[in-house]
Design a protein around this nucleic acid. Structure first.
Lengths: 302, 302
DNA sequence: AACGAAGTGAAGGAAATTTTCGGTGGCGGC
DNA sequence: GCCGCCACCGAAAATTTCCTTCACTTCGTT
């Protein structure tokens, strides 16, 4: 048996449709039917066995195999693999189509895809817009802080707690304040070596600005994490870290992407501090891990 | 007893790497070897037969087939097809530049880039691995719920609060319970039309499983959001939503990516419910927005 | 130390793929 | 008009690949 097509030609990955067209004239009728089916619906054909494809095209198994050979594959098995690859490729190529807003009647699969995509976008934006100089200054202040107070209400309050939890785990003294009154009361205690952090997307949340102002006036180092660096909060902030202001829609409130953005900033702060205080941080981290181990059921461990 | 794994879950196309990571902990040694080979070199493995892969990994054909089954495919043949697809996708999409771990001496700019990249990856994995059937069922239960209780401790506790905040904003009755004792006490009150949600990365956090069990036994619809769908928590869950299990490093604790993953799932739940209850949800959302407006200073509001 | 459960691979059985081979129909020559 | 050649095709055998069953090993348990 001699090679019909290019000598040692490797099986075609994506150039399959083209190959079908090229070779079609030299094919017999039944082979053309098979080739047509294959080129028309790669994904569907990839799911079929030789017998299945033979029946679908009204031909025999032998013909299917012959077609596969003609297309340059050792046999049907390999054609099928190439087909699966092709299907996957055009599948992923179609993906970026879901950039649109989330609609009320979107199927859940679309919701998942769009949300994930949006949040990925938010992360990219945030990373791109983050001022590493300001970040570095903030990290330095935190690493040397005697005490750290974090202010945030609503959704930002959770971010504040997240930061606090993490800082505590590496041995720093941090508090998250959700209650504005208590926050102010505590802010009065802060002094030169302390750090106060305000987290607010709008940059104009009074409940958060007030304690920051007090801390600022008492000489603490103040940091603002906000989506509006030109907002009132920056007035009392030594360092401003900007979160991305993402598009929101009716169904997708701004809180969602601002939260993602804020968390990334907070994570960066944390990692930065952990780097600076590596000796103690690593120790504290493993210690807290050990302490929690017994709280887990013995489940299927492995 | 109900399905532990995604019931009608269609075989994963690109979610394979994520699935391997998710399921790896629950695998036996030899299966892990197979999974590792598969995840490490999709293209190469796609070229091998069962026997070939078995020899390569030093195991038996039976083990290879078992692994394929565990990953959600009917048999090795289908895993092989998916592998070919994955290889084709990887081929077209170029490998990213910064895949390395975060090191102690990384400059801050790198930290930001790596963190953002990792979280993006986590989002993609989570979206790919999320079972939309389970998600849909969970959404349906939530939309019709009389009362919703959410359990979570530690970092997952914040996610629980986030979900609760959002559900409250669209007019649902939701509570987040951090205290295990109070959680159990309240779980007793739950009945048929109520929903209980447990959030735990490890899937074996006793403090969270216990209230879920109580809720389950009192007839409430139970949902588990976990990175270990085979963990003890799934025992008492009507619906299991899987979060991605990402690589962690010394500096970057698992809590970080699991939080990102959990938040995406929670957001999907929220949007899903908001869609179903659009009439009331939209109203409630704008109402809560209005109510908050006066808490913002009049700052430079462009 | 004995028991049991889970993990593993070898061998046999099922299903797929590939090859072989005989039948059919078209086409030109006698 | 009949015959023979040849390309085309498919049924069934041959082979490879895949799946299932079962017995053996290993590890943890009581």
């Amino acid at each position: 048996m001699k090679e019909i097509f290019g000598g040692g030609a490797p099986p075609a990955p994506a150039a399959l449709a083209a190959k079908v067209r090229t070779l079609a004239p030299s094919m017999t009728r039944s082979m053309q039917r098979v080739a047509e089916a294959v080129a028309g619906d790669p994904a569907g054909c990839a799911a079929l066995t030789v017998t299945g494809l033979a029946e679908l095209t009204g031909t025999s198994e032998a013909t299917v195999v012959r077609t596969a050979r003609l297309l340059g594959y050792p046999g049907y098995r390999d054609l099928r693999l190439a087909l699966a690859g092709l299907a996957a490729q055009q599948q992923s190529g179609r993906a970026p189509a879901v950039t649109a807003d989330i609609a009320v009647d979107d199927p859940l699969a679309d919701v998942v895809a769009k949300l994930a995509y949006d949040e990925q976008q938010t992360l990219a934006d945030t990373a791109a817009g983050l001022d590493t100089v300001q970040l570095g200054a903030a990290v330095t202040a935190l690493a040397a802080a005697r005490r750290i107070d974090v202010y945030g209400v609503g959704a930002s309050g959770l971010v504040a707690q997240d930061l606090t939890q993490k800082l505590l785990r590496i041995g720093l003294i941090a508090h998250a304040h959700g209650d504005p009154h208590l926050a102010v009361t505590n802010a009065v205690q802060l002094a030169a070596r302390d750090v106060a952090i305000a987290i607010t997307h709008s940059g104009s949340t009074g409940d958060v600005i007030e304690p920051l102002r007090v801390a600022f006036e008492h000489g603490a180092t103040t940091i603002a994490i906000t989506g509006r660096p030109d907002g009132p909060v920056s007035q009392y902030a030594d360092h401003v870290l900007t979160t991305s202001t993402a598009r929101e829609s009716e169904l997708r409130p701004a809180a969602m992407s601002s939260r993602t953005s804020q968390l990334l900033v907070v994570d960066c702060l944390f990692i930065g501090v952990a780097q600076r205080t590596y000796e103690t941080a690593a120790l504290a981290l493993s210690a807290s891990y050990e302490a929690l181990a017994h709280r887990h059921r013995s489940g299927p461990s492995r």
